[in-house]
């Protein structure tokens, strides 16, 4: 019985995470207005993916994704965005 509840809980969490990830991915692609929001949404996709990796039994991958995929990558994007700001004709 315990196992049953645990499994269903994990299933629900996974579904919720997947949904949130897809919404964030849509924001990353379709946000016509603001580039920073798209970058943050891409970082959010990575962060949610790292939680999902944890649920899928891959803690090593989860740590890597959290540190590299959502941390350093997002920062790199903003670094470059700060450099090209002001001259980008269409943002």
């Amino acid at each position: 019985m315990d196992l049953f509840i645990r499994d269903n809980l994990m299933l629900a969490m996974l579904l919720l995470l997947s949904l949130a990830m897809l919404v964030a991915a849509f924001m990353a692609i379709y946000s016509k207005r603001s580039l920073p929001i798209a970058m943050l949404a891409a970082g959010l996709v990575s962060l949610l993916a790292s939680v999902q990796f944890l649920l899928l039994g891959a803690p090593d991958v989860a740590m890597t994704e959290a540190a590299i995929g959502s941390g350093l990558t997002t920062f790199l994007f903003f670094f470059i965005l700060g450099r090209v700001r002001g001259g980008a004709n269409r943002d």
Partner: peptide
């Protein structure tokens, strides 16, 4: 869980 790649990224974020 962890190791060289994760720890290296954490070190780099300290530098950041």
């Amino acid at each position: 869980p962890g190791g060289g790649f994760q720890g290296g990224a954490i070190l780099a974020s300290g530098m950041l």
